[in-house]
Write a protein that binds this DNA or RNA. Sequence first.
DNA 1: GGTTGAACCTCCAGTGGCTAGAGGATGTAT
DNA 2: ATACATCCTCTAGCCACTGGAGGTTCAACC
Lengths: 142, 142
Amino acid sequence: MLTIGNLAKKTGTKVQTIRYYEQIGLMPEPGRTEGGQRRYGEAELDRLSFIRHSRQLGFSLDAIRELLDLGDHPDRPCQEADTIARRQLKQVERRMARLEALQTELRRMVRECSGGRTADCRVLEVLRDHSECLTDHEEIGV
Amino acid sequence: MLTIGNLAKKTGTKVQTIRYYEQIGLMPEPGRTEGGQRRYGEAELDRLSFIRHSRQLGFSLDAIRELLDLGDHPDRPCQEADTIARRQLKQVERRMARLEALQTELRRMVRECSGGRTADCRVLEVLRDHSECLTDHEEIGV
DNA sequence: GGTTGAACCTCCAGTGGCTAGAGGATGTAT
DNA sequence: ATACATCCTCTAGCCACTGGAGGTTCAACC
């Protein structure tokens, strides 16, 4: 039987985060000691590991919820899991493309900075005038 | 003189976002009509354009605040602006590296999915067992 | 059995960067 | 004068946590 602190250590999660997962129904309500402290078993350890690893791969908590559901139905076709993973891959690819454009632009800005007065600063100039940019980066926060 | 709606249109910002920027002190309090509606001039249009463009390049609102400050002191050396831009570039590079690792792993997961029952699903299997991963992806949300 | 002290508990608030909606006032064109 | 698009303030919500206050429990040691 694991205390919440030990479960946290084993999975690289913060204690508060585990309680948060319980609160939003991603983790089950565990057993308690007489004094009211949570105690966890193997099943919960596995489930939390799954959640954490999925988070590391960038899946949203909603997506993880779906994936956990699928894991509970071993006889259903795995197409759905595949779809969720593909969706996630698409998102990662879109973000990569965007970051690449930003990288290009930022590198150019920094390279062209001559180190003079702020008045002549290329960095500020480029930020002031979008038309100086060579790449597309219309979206925010993708 | 621009209404808030027109300023929004010209800069590709939502009206609420402009009011939010005012609230947190990123945009100045503009003049008002007798009835209390906001009216904006060229200076505000320029400032908001600067903010939006910086956001598109991924700068945080705090960083943007610093950059705006620098723009108000044309005689100071532009080293600080350079530093902020370099910091931003570093962050973008870190994110890119991380996303690349995720991409690799997700592609492998999806490629190996045979389309059978959920019980044999590679996607779920990999998520269950981190040791199946070839890449490092410890951090969350970078 | 008593005493530490680390770890646990609940509850509330805050992060960033917006976004949405309620309920009402204003501005402009006809 | 009227219609109605746009404006106003205020509050609350999003995601995925994180931190802290103030109090309780557990396990080890004497």
